[in-house]
Each structure stands twice: as structure tokens, then as C-alpha cells.
Write a protein that binds this DNA or RNA. Structure first.
Length: 749
RNA sequence: UGGGGUAUCGCCAAGCGGUAAGGCACUAGUUUUUGGUACUGGUAUUCGGGGGUUCGAAUCCCUCUACCCCAUCCA
């Protein structure tokens, strides 16, 4: 777990500390209507991870309130995904459908409270009545049905006396709410459909907004974590729980940004399209960002989890670069997996001066991987090397085999090209080479220096294998539709050649094919007779990159110039106030402007001004500190009054306290409502301006931070702030910052 | 257009009034029988823009801008 906390963990810790919750209970609540993808993995990692970190527990709950979309096969896939990632839910898998009776009872309760009603409007009428984002909606005429009538109708809905869509149950909240979600949200609809678990027991089903909060409550969830698009739903969440007046503790909803990864799509709809249009082979196609896809591709659960940990949790919509994921799988596999040799595109080499056969003993692991294990590598005069490991006209930074450059066969001998054989079209079909008998790996006495060692396989002893080379599914970062598909996302190589030990010994299911990348024996199509490997990810390659780099043109980054919008004009009276503030009170126009435009603020200011004639200082503190508080509450909720602010300003003006301490005093006034003088007295906050007192403290700080002193002297002048900060810190903020500044500057000269 | 969110390096992301963390990517070098790994360095005088408050602002105030979400009987 990362030692730096994300915002959710910060909230959890605060709640634990404040006693808002006693135990941390989370839940992973997917709707079983599609296959889980890596976005779900993020949510799983968050929910199960937080529960684990705070010794709580996490439930797995299928949010199955819509019988027409859900299926048990999806529920199974979801369960598998959680297990595969290595998490355990508490008890059985939960289902919202388990709570249908309880949820129904809560609905009855709401009706009895007059907080819910049966509406009988048509679907399109309901939409029309809801209004728009700028216009208020209007309430249905059915909203004033009596409680008895509502009860009876709802009962009959449940009994199945009505057809789908004839009636619905709605919460009675506010048809003109600015939050559209609060305009009498729907709580129950009639659905004569078979539910994959509940069968046909029900023909009314609760909506998400009603079922989710209650399910959380029923399960004792403390932190209901969901994605950003539910921010507007939080109001309903709270409304239901509060209106029902449930006994605490109750759950609270928190939202985080869902995961986006470039060059792929993450929405269920788009994923489904790809599967249905047969662009991919199924939900487990290795190119898909589904859990099943990653699993089939060869990704490990550890690597996915590390990835989730690395990307962090925040509220900003973001698009993570695939290279981050690729790093995670490479990093996971590098120390674990055996290295073997496989030639993807074979080029035949005949070693003319070698006519024997031998088995070379070769370790599965490189020197820096502390693992044991080796295999026999058959070697003879006919071998294959990778086609692009030979180049007839090579640039000088090409390290492999050329007519003039020898190369080492990994684990074996150094060879030198003697003759290039071409077909009628001029394609190279074979190389005749000679080896150096003294150059054998491990006992090299040849003295020949080569620039690289390449992988190879014996022509006769190697096995033919199918290798499926995957690349990103889309060729653009943020794909919109199938137009953006990468035509080369899958390359099937039928006749790659692999060293025999891989098939015969099977030391693992994942391998590093030396110099190529990590590969995985396909769990479904692999057989000893017809081995199939999936490419998980390539190695980082500076040569490959260089050769590819010439193609894409880097787009120039142009910094956009920002144009300021128009500011709303002041009214005549605001204008007059502004004039008075700037002309007679000499406030700066910015301060005057904010004051004049805010009636609450200006009247607060005027009142303070009547007790203390210090217009500028007063204006500053009112427009800054007081304004902040007024953003969150009304004037009458404030614990302090204008004259106390005046008092605070007066002791700043006369030098009793510094501006810095004033902030501290202000904080105190906010919570206790005590008078500034009293706070200063109680806490002994009078500022220290005597240089004789401050100087020794500065000396001490300077002595303790020799590094920063030298950095400062080397020209890093912003470090002045560091020293001032340290001095202030050690005096509890009481040292006069101006004096400190001057003194520090002097001493550091 | 009303409401709710978000903006810190190419991509993620810490930071909550006192020296702009970290990871990926990029880059230079060392080691290397993988152009891998590992290691060592280099990468934001600046936090969406502009003002203001303060000795000191990414952090507080004002204002503008951009993007995301909300008008499914989906979740």
C-alpha cells in the first residue's frame, strides 16, 4: 500500500477519528449486465483495499434492480474478477434483490409519511413535466393523491394488476430543484419480467436511487464509494436516508474519477459493440481492456493491482497512458519469468565450418535474476536467426549481424557472415557464415569483440509455434468509433520457431522470449501438438523506438491565448458604493469591487467600520477572511460579529499581533466566538518584535541547516522563505515576520 | 443557459500559507553475452489566465476561461 494517502483514505481516517463511523465497511456494487474491465479493477482495488487498510470489510454486491438487462453469467464473471485479483468479500455474495422486501417496506413508509406518491403520467409526459436545466418543472396532478389511495395503488402495482408503465412510484421532493435529479425522482417501476434470481416474484422493481442507499444502509456500509457521474445522485441518497430517519450509523457517498486509458475504450456499450460486431473474438479477446482479456493475454493480477495503486485516486477526469500499465506487467514479470529463445521471422544461417551437433547448457535466468534452472540448447550447423538481426547495408549504430560485423549467438558462438544468398527477386533467403571455435560462451578465448548477442534456434530441433502478436486495438488516443481501429492490432505468426525445452520441459506458462518481450501460453488454444503463445508486452527497446520514431511527426505544442469573458455590469447602487469605497475610503478597486457587489459583505463591512476607523485593513480582512466563511453560511450563523472583526483589526494595526497570528485568532473566533483580545491573552499570542530575542533563534536555525545556507549563498534566494518559515515555526508563529525577514537576510549575507 | 464537479511537467499524481514529492514517459552516462534489467544523473523559477490580500500564495479572496456530469420508467 502506498504510504501517501489518497483523498478517500483521508476521509475514512477523519471519520474514524471523529467517530462518524466505528468500523469501515465498503462494498463493490456492480450491475451484472456486462463483463468487468480494468475500470472495475480500480473500483475493486479501492473498495477492498480501503477495507483491508482499516481493518474493516468489503462486500461484493450485485446491483440487480433491472431484470431486463442482467444475467447470471455476468454475475459470475464479476465474482471471478474479484477472486482473480485476490480479494475476498465478507460472507456470501450480496444482491440488491435480497433486499427487495425491505426496500418495499421502506417505500410504504415513505408513502405513509406523505413523501412518496403513485404517479400515473405517461412516460413522455413525465419527461415534459420535469422541465429543463434552466426551467423549473411542474408537479403531476397525481401528486396530491391521498396516502390511502397511494397505498392502495402501490399495493396493486405490486400485485401485478397494471401493465408496465401504467404507474410509477415517485418521491415527493421538489419539481423546481436546481439539481434535476431531485425533481421527484422515480423510485419504483412496473416490470413484468423474469429476474435472474428473484424469478417472477416481483413485478415492481426499485430504481437505483432508491435501492442503492438502502442496500448500503442494510449492509452497514460506512463509505459508499462510486464514480463521479453519481455526484448529482448524492442528494437523493441523503434525502432517502434522512427522510426515513433511519437509526445511525448510516452510509455516506463519496465519488472518484473513473479510469480512462488511451488507445482503448472502456464503456460497456462500446465494448459490447466490439464483441457483437466480431471485431474482436469475444469478451476475453486479449486486446480488450476486460479482466478476462488481460487474463487471457497473460497479465498477472499483481500487475493490474500495482497499476491501480500507481495511478492513484482523485476527482479529476483523466486518461492514463497505456505505457504505465505496460511498465507494471514488465516490472512484475522481469524477476519471475524464464528467458527462452524464439525466432518469430526465421532467417536461415548455415555455419559452413561446423559439422557437429551439441547441446549447450543454458540458464533460464540472466545474471541479475536470482533464480535457478537451466535447459539444454541444441546447436548444429543449421540455425535460424531473426530476419531483422541481419542487415546488408546497415547504419553504423546497428549492432547486429552485417557482412562486416560479427555477432554472438546468445549462449553459443560468435559467427561472421561470409555469403548472402538471395532468390530471384533479390530477397535474402539464407546466410552462409563461419563460427569461431574458441568463442564458445563461458569459455571464450577468441578475443573477438562483438556489439551484441542475438537469439537463435536450431533449425532441426526447434519446434514450430503459433505466436499471436497483439498491439493496441485503436490507433488514436481517444477512439470514437470503429473508424479508429488499428488494422494491425493482431498479427498471427504461424511458423515461429522455438527452442524445444519450452515445449518439452514447460518450465512455466509465461516466458520472456529473449530480446522480444513477454509471452504467455494461451490457456485455451495451447496444446503440445500445436503450441500457441500470446504476446503480453514487448521489451523496452531503444533501437526499435529509434527506427519507428522517424515516422510519427510530433505535433507542436501551441499555447493557447486566453480571452477574458465579459464581467457582469454593476447595478447603479453597487456602482455608487464602489465610488464611495474607492474615492473617499481609498480602497483599491479590486477590494472595493468585491465589497460593492456583495450586499452581505458590504453591510458587514459598514458595521465594522462604524466601530473602527480603519477602512483599508477592515476591507481587506472582510473581503478575504470573512468572505470565505460567508460562502458557506449566512451572516447570522457566524459566531463573530463586525465589532469583533474591528477589534481584531485594531490589534493588528497597533502591532500587538502580526497578520499571521491574526489568521490564527480568526480561526479561533470562528469556532469559539471569543473576542480577539481574549484569545490573544489566553494563548499568549502577542508577537515578538525584539531583535535580541529573535536573533538567537535565527542563529540556531542557520546552524541546523548548513545545506540550505550554502544553497542560499549559491544564489537560491527563495530559500529566504524557508528560513523565515522555520523561525516562525519555532516561535509558534509569534515572531514578527518583517523583523525576521530583515534579520535573516542580514545574517545570510 | 440553471445546478454539480475538475484544472499542478508529455501522461497520472502529492501538496491545504513557509525549499513544487513520487511514478510512467523522455534523456545522458555506468554495468551488461537481452539495444532488457539494475544503478547514477537531467528534466515545472512555476501550479488554467488575470487581479487582490500577505513579510511570504499552487494553497485565502475576486474574476474570467476550458473541460466533465445532470432533463432513461438505466446503473
Amino acid at each position: 500500500m502506498s504510504e501517501r494517502k489518497d483523498f478517500l483514505r483521508t476521509i475514512v481516517e477523519e471519520d474514524l477519528k471523529s467517530g462518524k463511523c466505528k468500523e469501515v465497511v465498503t462494498r463493490f456494487p456492480p450491475e451484472p449486465n456486462g463483463f468487468p474491465h480494468i475500470g472495475h479493477a480500480k473500483s475493486i482495488a479501492i473498495n477492498f483495499g480501503i477495507a483491508r487498510d482499516y481493518n474493516g470489510y468489503c462486500n461484493l454486491r450485485m446491483d440487480d434492480t433491472n431484470p431486463t438487462k442482467e444475467d447470471t453469467k455476468y454475475a459470475q464473471a464479476l465474482e471471478d474478477a474479484v477472486k482473480w485479483l485476490g480479494f475476498e468479500w465478507k460472507g456470501d455474495v450480496r444482491h440488491t434483490s435480497d433486499y427487495f422486501h425491505q426496500i418495499y417496506d421502506y417505500a410504504i413508509q415513505l408513502i405513509k409519511m406523505g413523501k412518496a406518491y403513485v404517479d400515473s403520467l405517461q412516460e413522455d409526459e413525465i419527461r415534459e413535466y420535469r422541465g429543463t436545466v434552466t426551467e423549473a418543472g411542474k408537479r403531476s396532478k397525481y401528486a396530491n393523491r391521498s396516502i390511502e389511495e397511494n397505498l392502495e395503488l402501490f399495493e396493486r402495482m405490486k400485485k401485478g394488476e397494471f401493465k408496465d408503465g401504467e404507474h410509477i412510484l415517485r418521491a415527493k421532493i421538489d419539481m423546481s430543484a436546481a439539481n434535476m435529479k431531485m425533481r421527484d425522482p422515480l423510485m419504483y417501476r412496473i416490470r413484468h419480467a423474469e429476474h435472474f434470481r428473484a424469478g417472477d416474484e416481483w413485478c415492481v422493481y426499485p430504481m437505483y436511487d432508491f435501492a442503492h442507499c438502502l442496500s448500503d444502509y442494510i449492509e452497514g456500509v460506512s463509505h459508499s464509494i462510486c464514480t463521479l457521474e453519481f455526484e448529482n445522485n448524492r442528494d437523493i441518497y441523503n434525502w432517502v436516508l434522512e427522510t426515513l430517519n433511519l437509526t445511525p450509523p448510516r452510509p455516506y457517498q463519496h465519488e472518484f474519477a473513473r479510469l480512462g486509458i488511451n488507445y482503448t475504450v472502456m464503456s460497456k456499450r462500446k465494448l459490447l459493440e466490439l464483441v457483437e460486431s466480431k471485431v474482436v473474438s469475444g469478451w476475453d479477446d486479449p486486446r480488450l481492456p476486460t479482466i478476462a482479456g488481460y487474463k487471457r493475454r497473460g497479465y498477472t493480477p499483481e500487475s493490474i493491482l500495482t497499476f491501480c495503486d500507481q495511478i492513484g485516486i482523485a476527482k479529476a477526469n483523466s486518461m492514463v497512458d497505456v505505457s504505465q500499465l505496460e511498465f507494471c506487467i514488465r516490472d512484475d514479470l522481469n524477476p519471475k519469468v524464464p528467458r527462452v529463445m524464439c525466432v518469430l521471422e526465421p532467417l536461415k544461417i548455415t555455419i559452413t565450418n561446423y559439422d557437429a551437433k551439441e547441446d549447450i547448457d543454458a540458464s533460464y535466468y540472466p545474471h541479475d535474476v536470482p533464480k535457478e534452472g537451466s535447459r539444454k540448447l541444441p546447436f548444429s550447423s543449421e540455425i535460424y536467426i531473426e530476419r531483422d538481426d541481419f542487415m546488408e547495408d546497415a547504419p553504423k549504430d546497428y549492432f547486429r549481424l552485417t557482412p562486416t560485423q560479427s555477432v554472438r549467438l546468445k549462449h553459443a558462438y560468435i559467427i561472421t557472415c561470409k555469403e548472402i544468398i538471395k532468390d530471384d527477386e533479390g530477397n535474402i533467403i539464407e546466410i552462409k557464415a563461419e563460427y569461431s571455435a574458441e568463442s564458445k560462451s563461458g569459455s571464450d578465448t577468441s578475443g573477438i569483440k562483438v556489439k551484441s548477442a542475438i537469439h537463435w534456434v536450431d533449425a532441426k530441433e526447434s519446434k514450430e509455434v503459433e505466436v499471436r502478436v497483439y498491439d493496441r486495438l485503436f490507433s488514436v488516443e481517444a477512439p470514437a468509433d470503429e473508424q479508429d481501429l488499428n488494422p494491425n492490432s493482431l498479427k498471427v505468426i504461424k511458423n515461429a520457431r522455438i527452442e524445444p525445452a519450452v515445449i518439452e520441459q514447460k518450465p512455466d506458462v509465461r516466458f520472456q522470449f529473449e530480446r522480444q518481450g513477454y509471452f504467455y501460453a494461451d490457456p485455451i488454444d495451447y496444446s503440445d501438438a500445436k503450441p500457441v503463445f500470446n504476446k503480453i508486452v514487448g521489451l523496452k527497446g531503444s533501437w526499435d523506438k529509434k527506427t519507428k520514431q522517424n515516422e510519427p511527426t510530433t505535433k507542436p505544442q501551441v499555447k493557447k491565448e486566453q480571452i477574458d469573458g465579459e464581467v457582469v455590469a454593476m447595478t447603479a447602487s453597487e456602482q455608487a458604493l464602489f465610488q464611495r469605497y474607492t474615492d473617499t475610503l481609498k480602497l483599491n478597486s479590486e477590494v472595493a469591487n468585491t465589497l460593492a457587489r456583495d450586499a452581505q459583505l458590504s453591510s458587514f463591512y459598514e458595521e465594522a467600520l462604524s466601530t473602527l476607523n480603519s477602512p483599508i485593513s477592515l476591507a481587506n480582512i472582510v473581503t478575504n477572511e470573512v468572505a470565505r466563511e460567508l460562502k458557506q453560511m449566512q451572516v447570522n450563523e457566524l459566531k463573530f460579529n463586525p465589532s469583533q472583526i474591528a477589534e481584531l483589526v485594531s490589534i493588528i494595526d497597533d502591532g500587538t499581533i502580526s497578520n499571521k497570528i491574526a489568521k490564527q485568532v480568526f480561526e479561533e473566533m470562528l469556532t469559539s466566538g471569543k473576542s480577539p483580545n481574549k484569545i490573544v491573552q489566553e494563548k499568549g499570542l502577542v508577537q515578538i518584535s525584539d531583535p535580541d530575542v529573535i536573533a538567537p533563534i535565527i542563529d540556531d536555525i542557520i546552524a541546523k541547516n548548513p545545506d540550505n545556507v550554502s544553497k542560499f549563498k549559491a544564489g537560491n534566494t527563495k530559500l529566504l522563505g524557508f528560513f523565515v518559515g522555520q523561525v516562525l515555526k519555532s516561535t509558534g508563529g509569534k515572531a514578527n515576520p518583517q523583523v525576521v525577514n530583515k534579520l535573516v537576510a542580514q545574517k545570510l549575507q
